Structure formats: C-alpha cells, structure tokens
Simulated assay, not measured.
Amino acid sequence: MEYITLDKLVEDLELEIIYKADNMEKIKISASEISRPGLPLAGYFNKFAYDRLQIIGNAEWFFCNNLTKDLRYKRFEEYFSYNFPALIFARELPIFPEAIEFAKKYNRTILSVDISTTKLVNTIINYLDYVLAPGTVVHGVLMEVYGLGVLIIGESGVGKSETALELIKRGHRLVADDVIEIKKVDSGLRGQSPDIIRYFMEIRGIGIIDIERLYGVGAIKSDEFIDLVIELEFWDEKKEYDRVGLDEDYIDLLGEKVPKLLIPVRPGRNLAMIVEVAARNARQKKLGYNAAVELNNKIKTQMRIRKARDIRNEK
C-alpha cells in the first residue's frame, strides 16, 4: 500500500478526535516516520518535518505550558501554518486553547490518546510499517505448526482446509483460511486473514465453521511469519516425486525466497502428520541440521572407506 488515509489510521488506532479537519478522509500518510516538534515549538523551523504525524508528549507540553501566553500564541500560529497531517496529544494531556484556535483557522486535525508517548510512538510506527509495506494476497491456509508459520497451498478441493482442521485438532493454531494477506516487513513475510473472514473456515459438506467458537482462543492466532510453504497436489502416477530431500525448492513471495515442499495427495495419506513432520524438519534445518545431507555424507564416507579398503586388498 502506497499510503493510508488519516481517517483510517484514527479508526484503526482508536484515537480520540479533538478537532477534525474537513478533509481528514483525503489526507494521505505515506511514511512511517513521526515528529516530536520540540525545536519548532522553540521557534526553530529550519528542517521541520511537517509532512509527518506530529506528537506532543510530556516534554513538549510542559515546555509550551511554561511559555508566556503571547509567545505561545505566536509559536502555535507559526507551527499550525505548516500543513502537517495531524497533531496527537499523548497521555490525554490538556489541549491548549491556542491549538484549537489555529486548528480551526488552518484546518488541521487534533487527536488525543491516553497512552504514554513512547508507547504511542512505537504503536504508530509499527502500524504504519505494516500497512505501508508491500503486500499480496494468496489463496490457501496459514497455520502455526510447532512455532513455524506454514502456508498450505494447492488446487481447490485438494484438502487444504481439511488438513488444517486436523492440525487444529492436534493442537496447532489457525491464522487464516482461504485468503491470506501477506506483507513484506523488515523481519520477513507476515500473513494474516482479512478482518471479515478471520477465524472462519469452509469445510465442504459442512459449510462455514467458526474455529474460535469450536476450539477456543488457543486454536487461533492473529498473524504469523511464513517460514515454510507446502503445496498439496493430487497424486500423479507419471510424476517422479522427491524421495530424498537433497534438492531444495523455493517459492518467490514479494521478492523473498521461502522454502517449499510439494506433497502428493492420495487416499490413505495422513496429511496432517506429514505437515507436522515437515515443520519439525524445517525447524531442524533452521538450526543447522539437514537429515538428507547428513545421510548423504555418511554414505559418501562409507564409500570412501570401502574404496580405500579395496585398494589395500588389491595391493
């Protein structure tokens, strides 16, 4: 997403509106940086980052409160003449009358919140980093399995939701079914469900079920980083499937390479158990142990020993 509108930010973060600019729904925020306007309020407007959200905390508030009334009036008028997106007062600090006056004059939005300044800054930056990050939508199921985010994809009807339901019964957690919104953030690829279908799942023959209602809050998770992609496909007798695991396969998601496994589906295969094993094995690989490589090395070592023994016997 290239930008978010101010009214959407206010709604999502549940900020209190003290004064609303008449164009609030058209104000665009396209960067996650914020500004604490200590220097501008002290009269130094050179390099003032007025295009960012402005936050007044304890330090800025008490500085302004100690100014003479005339000087505060002058500073606020110059400050509000800049076209900033909004001014947020943290800790439910009292709003200066001059701020209200010039917000009306220059059509600026003033907001308030009852949390600390540091927490407010972190909340806004994390929120904007996420909503402004590059994103995509994928059809599948996202689960947390043994602490790893496992994205299950495949053709319609191959059994993605049924596999996820069995994983939930085994104690793992559902993040999203059917539609997964993926965002590229600094820590990796994070997936979640759209709000409207969050924690709902479609099971053919039954219909829509509510996982939170049926299995409790321990069976769900709001979001998860994607560590492994498992593609389910109907078994093809003519196709040669990997039986060793030496060849690593990856899928590209938003420019990030994510390990991918192709799992053939046919009657009698316990897909939930296979996904569990795949997750455990992926975690071992993250820790530096690859069973396929380990076995291959042992075989090579054994072959070298036998070859050396054969050479000695020939002599």
Rank of each mutant, 00 (worst) to 15 (best):
R72C: 09
R72A: 09
R72K: 13
Y73Q: 14
K74C: 05
K74T: 13
K74W: 09
R75G: 04
R75A: 12
E78L: 12
Y79M: 01
Y79S: 08
F80I: 02
S81C: 01
S81P: 01
S81L: 00
Y82S: 00
N83T: 05
N83H: 10
F84T: 00
P85C: 00
L87Q: 06
I88R: 02
I88P: 05
I88D: 02
F89T: 00
A90G: 00
A90S: 12
A90I: 06
A90P: 05
R91I: 04
R91W: 06
R91N: 14
R91G: 07
R91L: 08
E92H: 14
E92R: 15
L93D: 04
P94D: 01
I95S: 11
F96T: 08
F96E: 04
P97L: 08
P97E: 08
E98I: 09
E98M: 07
E98A: 09
A99N: 07
I100E: 13
E101P: 04
F102E: 03
F102P: 02
F102C: 07
F102L: 06
F102G: 06
F102R: 04
A103M: 00
A103Y: 03
K104M: 07
K105P: 04
K105T: 04
N107G: 05
N107M: 03
N107V: 01
T109K: 06
T109V: 05
I110A: 02
I110N: 04
I110D: 05
L111A: 01
L111M: 14
S112A: 11
V113S: 11
V113C: 11
V113A: 13
V113G: 06
D114C: 05
T117M: 00
T117R: 03
T118I: 15
T118E: 15
T118P: 07
T118F: 15
K119G: 12
K119H: 12
L120M: 13
V121I: 15
V121W: 12
V121H: 10
T123W: 09
I124Q: 11
I125H: 04
I125E: 12
N126Y: 14
N126P: 06
N126F: 13
N126M: 13
N126H: 11
Y127C: 10
L128H: 03
L128W: 04
D129S: 00
D129V: 04
D129C: 02
D129F: 09
D129I: 09
Y130R: 15
Y130S: 14
Y130V: 14
V131W: 02
L132K: 01
L132M: 00
A133T: 09
A133D: 05
P134C: 12
P134E: 14
P134R: 14
P134Y: 14
P134D: 14
G135W: 12
G135M: 13
T136V: 13
V137H: 15
V137P: 11
V138R: 13
V138N: 11
V141K: 10
V141M: 09
